[in-house]
Structures are given as C-alpha cells and as structure tokens.
Design a protein around this nucleic acid. Structure first.
Lengths: 166, 166
DNA sequence: CGTGAAACCGTCGCCCC
DNA sequence: GGGGCGACGGTTTCACG
C-alpha cells in the first residue's frame, strides 16, 4: 500500500467522491470518462486498499445543538510509549473528543472537542480531562467561528506536482 | 433553522448517515423503522434545512502522498473586522489549508494544513502564510500521528441530554 | 406515512482490446 | 491487465390513498 499506484482515473474518482460521497456510480463513471462497471471495480479496489476510509454525512454541528467547539492543547507528565497510548485510549472513549492528534514540540496532544454548551464542556474539562492520570496541563481555545472546513486533501495540488515530476 | 424541530427518527437518520454516508435509502429506512419513501423525504428535508451540509468520502491523507499535517496558530496585528475577513478569504484560497477556525484568547486563528512533504509546507509557511499582510506570528506543530478522527457530533450525548430534559 | 409502479441504478457474466 | 455490453434484481422516486 505505497504511494502512487494510482492512475489519473483513480485520482479523479477519489476527488469526485471526496467532493460528493453520495454520487451514484453511473454519474461518477460519466465524470471520470469510463463506463459504470470498471468504475465500480475501481471504487471497490480503492476502498479495499484503504485509500477510501469511509463515507460520512457532514452535519451542521451548531444547528444540532453543539454550540461549543474547543481546541484543547494537552501536555502530559510522561511521554513514555505506554502512557501516550493510555491517553489516546482515554480520548477514544470520550465522545466529546472528535479528534486526537499527537504533536511534536512543547504540547503533546491537540484535541478537537464539541459540547452542547459551555457548562457541559467545563464539566468534561475539569472532571474528565484534567482529572485523567498523567495530564499535566490543558490549554483551551474556544472556536468563535469556522470559516473553512474542507475534508481530505487538495487534489489540485496533487495533480500539480504529478505534472511537474512524473 | 432553529434548534430541535427534529424528532427521534430524524436524529436517527442523521446518526446513521454520519456513520455511513453511502447507505442506500432502503437500508436507512429499515434501520430507522419506516418505509423508504418517507425516509427519503426526511433526508431531503434535512439537507434543505442545512442539517446535512454534504457527503464526503474520507480519504487516507497519508496514503495519497500528503505525509505532513500541521496545526498553525496564527496571531494577527489587527483584529478589526475587515482584517479578520481578509485573512479568512486568504485561507480560503490556500489549498493546503483545510480548516480555518477563529479562536478566542491570545491566538487569533488555528489552521489545519496538509502538505506532501516538509519542504512544500515550509515553502507555504514562509512564502504564503508569513508573507501575508497583517500576520504577526505563526506557531506550527507537526502532527506525529492521529489516533482519533470522527466527524460531526456524538449522537449518544445528544440523546442522553434529550432524555434528561425533554 | 404506506403502497404500488416506473425509471433508474448496482452488479454480474461474458466478450473484447 | 482493464474497459465495454447486456441483463437481472434491487433501489430511487413518483403519484395516490
């Protein structure tokens, strides 16, 4: 499962499905310029190879009553492998944590969290996150507004660099 | 477009489509316990009301050759409304920037960026981001690994609190 | 919201290059 | 190896009760 065993049609398929994950296969086939059966075979192959990890409806977080979004920068006391893993598993089990990224530098993790309101986030912060073992420090930043939120990768950039160094 | 004009079936539909955005309508209808036609009508309504903002394939960023992911914390000189908007528009036009969130506190924006490799990110950082007008400071953190990445909201939490305060 | 019908789509087998 | 053609069964999407 290396880098570029993908041809131009595969990349177009991925770009189209990233843009509209509910597109029918015939529509997709039309857009990438082949007929439906080979198009579907390619999609299945891309799924099985792990290039496509899933399909998700993008819901409006705020409209559904989750008005608070927070980035939490977490520092740990110990960065031993076992302790990092333990913290990650803890994050897995916190539904308010939607993303957990391990970082380089002074901060160890950044978490993207959602909550219905400030008090339920504060409750999560003080009871769960700050109460977890090995957590040294947490700095939180409230999201005031999100002006851009596009998933995945910019396929234009991918095509650009493929055309420069083929 | 208010808060909870959604009944239990609508919420189940949203939860299922968030989990699997390519589910067929008949499968979805079966899962939420109604027949296909009203189910499709509900989905269309949810889309038009903005609760569903789109459907996207979740691609494997690293497997597609974007091996570098970075969070960039940006401070601006001026936080005047026009200057904030100007910076947001600039982020819109940078394909390597996938998310742009305005924050409270000392940092003004957090950007989630992707890049094929470190040097192309460094190039973006020095030429584009640090070269943009009104940008005072940028602190970057490389993502070492992502251990959790789930989209949207935790519907369990939503149901929990609806059952407590109906 | 459910039923039925018509059009469309996903999917398979086969043939072709 | 991958792409196209044709056909069957399931699905989407009407109009109507």
């Amino acid at each position: 499962m290396p880098g570029q065993k993908l041809d131009a049609i595969d990349r177009k398929i991925l770009a189209e499905l990233q843009r509209d994950g509910r597109m029918t296969n015939v529509e997709l086939a039309k857009r990438v310029g082949i007929s439906a059966p080979p198009c579907l075979r390619r999609v299945r192959t891309l799924e099985e190879a792990g290039y496509i990890r899933g399909y998700h409806a993008q819901v409006d977080v705020r409209a559904l009553g989750f008005e608070v979004q927070v980035f939490a920068m977490v520092g740990l006391h110990s960065q031993a492998q076992a302790d990092l893993l333990e913290f990650q598993e803890r994050c897995d089990n916190w539904p308010l944590v939607r993303e957990c990224h391990m970082l380089n530098g002074e901060v160890d993790f950044i978490l993207k969290c959602v909550a219905p309101d400030l008090s339920s986030f504060q409750n999560f912060l003080t009871s769960d996150l700050l109460g977890a073992p090995n957590v040294e420090s947490v700095k939180t930043s409230l999201v005031i507004r999100t002006s851009k939120e596009v998933p995945g990768i910019p396929f234009e950039v991918m095509e650009d660099r493929l055309s420069k160094t083929p």
